[in-house]
Each structure stands twice: as structure tokens, then as C-alpha cells.
């Protein structure tokens, strides 16, 4: 018993100090605002003017002290059009990113689990390998492909100079000398899809890989076409992987601030950018914490919704194949 206590204590202490207390601080800062401390002007016995603060202390300098007051002012601020628009944009971009990752990633997982590739695990490793290069650098590298004087534009220019028909096609559509790819929402989405695609492929691959192959054989024996056995067997069985992939893409996508700053050039600020700003330049920790609370609620609500889908689908995939 004594040994048990020895093991639990440091770990519990760590969990309290580094997990619970910080989250508690966010909650506290989130529901409070700073207000100047109330004071009354008084004159000391020797005639110098002074200030008596509300807690009774007396000082000769003008009061600079602030106190935290519980207030929901910051939550009202969030629904102001400026911030509401940002929030909606963040959600929109994160959802689009998740959808695109799913559409691009699911076939990759499906193909790699099929018979086309001799060493699927090697290919899977090649898909994950890019994550070993710092993500800031990879995003930055995309910028040099897409910028106005970048590689893509110089290729297009070269092509237009070489083939007049292509040049005419572009000119007819009102495209100037350079195509602007960067610094808009699409660029931000591209950056996110690039960074998070492997997060979608991995869990889906793992789940499809585990599907009992005899189920598919049985489906085929009983006369199901490949597309039908995909819809009736593979798809329902892969759902848990899909849901995990969606979470793994959506959560970072809804809160990132780096990709939006690089690919969006500061023109597409997201909620993550605002939070970063509150803890940096604007230095309003209270509002920043309120926004963090909001992000936590959004993420938890999203994951709660996903779990609901998982539960609803559960009984169906047990027996019903046809």
C-alpha cells in the first residue's frame, strides 16, 4: 500500500499542476475582466495628497492597481460582427479542409490496403515521412511555389510564351501576367490540407487494414459487385477510422495560426491568430482566455457529435451485410 502511494503521488501532483491548474486559470481569466481598483483621494497629516485604495492601503502615487472582476463582457465581445465573422470563417475553413482531406485521403488508404502495391507499409511510411521536416519550412516552401514570382507562375508564363493558344485561352479569361495564388482563403486551405492530409490517411488505413478479408470474399461469393461490397462492408467498417481522421484534422485546423499567417499573409486571420494576438501584441489575457474557452467548447461539441454518429452506426455494422 505504501509503495502504491509513492507511485501515485508524484503523478497526481503533476496532473494537477500541469493539466488542471492551467485549464482552471484559462477558465478564471476567461470569465473575468480587469478593472481599475476603486480609491478615494485623501490628504495625509503632513498635507501631501494621497490615495486610499478599496482594500484600505494608502499610497501617494496615482493608483495603477487593477483587480479581476467576474464579468461576461468578453463573451459579448465575441459575438460582435468582427469576431463572429472570424469565428465563422475559421469553422468554414476547418470544415472544408477536413472534407478535402477526407476526399483525397480515403482513396489513398483504400488503394494502399488493396492488391496494387507490393509493399503498402513502405508507401505508408513515405506518406508520413514529410512530417519529419519542420511544418513551418514545408509551408514556407509552398509559398515559394505559389508566390507571384514563384515557380508555378514562371512555368505558366513559359507555357504561355511557347504556346500561343494557351496564352489566348488565359487572356480571354482575363488572367493577367501573374496569377495570384497566395494570400487568400484558398491558399490557407491548401496549406492546411497539405499539413494534415497524413492525419486523415493513417487512421483510415489502420482500420481498413484490420477488416477481415473473408467478409469481402463472402460478399463476392454471394454475388455482390465490388462497388456494392465496398458500400456494404468496407465503408461501414472503416467508419471509426474516418471519425478519428476527421478529429485529427479538424482540431488543429480550427485553431492554427501559423498556416493562416504564412499562406494568408495576414489577410485571412483566424480565431487562432486572434488568440495569439491577445497573448502577444494586444496583451489582453482575459479576452484571449475567453476565446480559448470558446475553442475548447467548439472542439468538445464537435467530438461529442462525432461520437454520436459512431454510436448510431454501431449495431448496423455487426450483422447487416446485405
Amino acid at each position: 500500500m505504501k509503495r502504491k502511494g509513492l507511485m501515485v503521488l508524484p503523478f497526481a501532483l503533476w496532473a494537477i499542476i500541469f493539466i488542471l491548474v492551467p485549464l482552471g486559470l484559462i477558465a478564471w481569466y476567461g470569465i473575468t475582466v480587469e478593472e481599475p481598483v476603486a480609491y478615494t483621494e485623501i490628504t495625509l497629516e503632513d498635507g501631501t495628497p494621497a490615495f486610499r485604495l478599496e482594500d484600505g492601503t494608502v499610497q501617494t502615487q496615482e493608483p495603477w492597481q487593477k483587480k479581476a472582476v467576474i464579468s461576461f463582457q468578453n463573451f459579448k465581445r465575441m459575438v460582435e460582427p468582427t469576431y463572429l465573422r472570424l469565428l465563422i470563417r475559421s469553422l468554414k475553413i476547418a470544415l472544408l479542409t477536413t472534407l478535402i482531406c477526407l476526399i483525397l485521403g480515403y482513396p489513398v488508404a483504400l488503394i494502399l490496403t488493396g492488391k496494387d502495391f507490393k509493399h503498402p507499409t513502405l508507401w505508408l511510411m513515405l506518406i508520413i515521412l514529410p512530417m519529419w521536416m519542420n511544418f513551418l519550412l514545408r509551408t514556407y516552401s509552398w509559398m515559394s511555389i505559389l508566390e507571384n514570382s514563384g515557380i508555378l507562375n514562371s512555368w505558366i508564363t513559359a507555357l504561355r510564351n511557347a504556346v500561343p493558344a494557351i496564352d489566348q485561352w488565359f487572356t480571354a479569361r482575363g488572367v493577367g501576367n501573374k496569377i495570384i495564388f497566395l494570400y487568400n482563403e484558398n491558399a490557407v486551405i491548401l496549406g492546411m490540407v497539405y499539413n494534415y492530409l497524413s492525419f486523415m490517411i493513417m487512421p483510415i488505413y489502420t482500420v481498413i487494414e484490420k477488416i477481415d478479408k473473408s467478409l469481402l470474399e463472402a460478399a463476392a461469393d454471394l454475388g455482390a459487385s465490388p462497388s456494392k461490397s465496398f458500400i456494404r462492408v468496407t465503408l461501414p467498417y472503416s467508419l471509426p477510422g474516418v471519425l478519428e481522421g476527421i478529429t485529427m484534422v479538424f482540431v488543429p485546423a480550427v485553431t492554427t495560426f501559423v498556416i493562416s499567417q504564412l499562406m494568408g499573409g495576414g489577410k485571412v486571420p483566424l480565431i487562432g491568430d486572434i488568440i495569439q494576438n491577445q497573448f502577444g501584441k494586444s496583451s489582453d489575457w482575459h479576452f484571449g482566455s475567453s476565446l480559448s474557452l470558446l475553442v475548447m467548447v467548439v472542439v468538445l461539441a464537435f467530438m461529442g457529435g462525432l461520437q454520436q454518429i459512431d454510436k448510431d452506426e454501431e449495431p448496423q455494422k455487426e450483422v447487416r451485410i446485405f
Binding site: 497526481a12 496532473a15 493539466i19 492551467p22 484559462i26 480559448s292 472542439v299
Partner: peptide, 23 residues
Amino acid sequence: MLSVVNLPMLNSEVVTGVSLMLL
């Protein structure tokens, strides 16, 4: 305890970073 330990993994990195900064 397990749900407490899992909290940082559910949270986004921004929230984790900010909460530790406050601490």
C-alpha cells in the same frame, strides 16, 4: 485520472500553450 491525463490531447495546441503560459 485517465480522463484528466487525456485532456491535453483533446485540447488544441494553442489552448495548451496559452494555459501553460498563464501558469
